[in-house]
């Protein structure tokens, strides 16, 4: 042990790791452990009965499905936005750059209320969409819109710095070596950005799964149709059913953790293959 420490170049390994672990336990692990401890008061069959009722299962589908889709949409448009912000200069660029962060700062309830006002059938956008048969407010589509809104900054802000570091010379070199524009994008730009894109995807997804404030206003909250899992948890809490609420929360936690772990593994794999290319 002592030998291992003396071999390190930087001092303070033991102290900083100890602090990291203590801090992480206090802030993250202890509250999460409480969820599992509370859930553990249930027998497995009771637990299963709570988390597998059709109404709860319908919320998993919506919560995870809409979150994955919203994160995917944000990847496409977030990368595009980051690209425009980094590679081109145009009037009002600083302003747009600042606008990107707004979903971070806005209280989620405000976002939910304004989106609902916008997309309701008498709203600015809703009045044109409704005659076309597109209903956004109070439908699952509304949930998606809210999740896209709150997730956007995560992708832009993770991709932007990496793109800034990616020298234009790489693209020029690729072009001078005879690569077509498309080849430059998918052989040079995308592989370099992929780890950052995946991080952005994971962050946007994680935020979307846990989102409550904004979704609740626009969802309509109809059982089997537009209820999200966090609403089920809140509902159970308001009925003083702590154990039922933590059971559903435990399912969400485990599912989210597995998904995030998968995304991280994918990211590590792409980083390795990106290094192989460059």
């Amino acid at each position: 042990m002592a030998a291992a420490i003396t071999r390190r170049v930087l001092p303070g390994f033991g102290l900083s790791l100890g602090f990291t672990l203590a801090y992480l336990s206090l802030i993250v692990l202890v509250p999460l452990a409480a969820v599992f401890v509370k859930t553990a008061t249930l027998s497995f069959s009771e637990f299963w009965a709570i988390v597998s009722t059709p109404r709860v299962v319908a919320t998993y589908r919506l919560s995870f499905g809409a979150s994955l889709l919203a994160a995917a949409i944000n990847v496409v448009f977030g990368v595009l936005l980051a690209w425009s912000l980094v590679r081109y200069s145009f009037p009002g660029k600083k302003l747009i750059d600042a606008l990107v962060d707004l979903p971070f700062a806005l209280p989620t309830a405000v976002a939910g209320i304004s989106l609902t006002a916008l997309y309701a059938k008498n709203g600015w956008l809703g009045q044109y969409l409704e005659p076309l048969g597109i209903k956004v407010a109070f439908t699952p589509l509304g949930v998606l819109v809210a999740l896209v809104f709150i997730g956007l900054p995560f992708v832009v802000r993770t991709v932007q710095p990496v793109l800034e570091d990616l020298d234009v010379e790489f693209e020029e070199a690729a072009a001078s070596l005879g690569a077509t524009r498309w080849q430059t994008v998918y052989r040079v730009v995308i592989p370099t950005l992929l780890p950052a894109i995946l991080t952005g995807f994971a962050l946007a997804f994680a935020r979307a799964v846990g989102e409550y404030g904004s979704v609740i206003f626009i969802a309509g909250n109809l059982p089997m149709v537009s209820e999200i899992t966090p609403l089920i948890i809140i509902t159970k809490l308001e009925q003083y059913d702590y154990v039922g609420a933590t059971a559903v929360a435990a399912v969400m936690l485990v599912a989210s953790f597995i998904l995030l772990l998968l995304i991280n593994a994918l990211q590590a794999w792409t980083r390795r293959s990106a290094r192989r290319i460059t």
Partner: peptide, 21 residues
């Protein structure tokens, strides 16, 4: 016949009076 289930009474009021639902 219920198209929207708001969390509380005030939310339902907003849906009916402001959103015209």
């Amino acid at each position: 016949n219920v198209p929207v289930l708001d969390g509380g009474g005030r939310g339902a009021t907003t849906t009916f009076t402001q959103r015209d639902v």
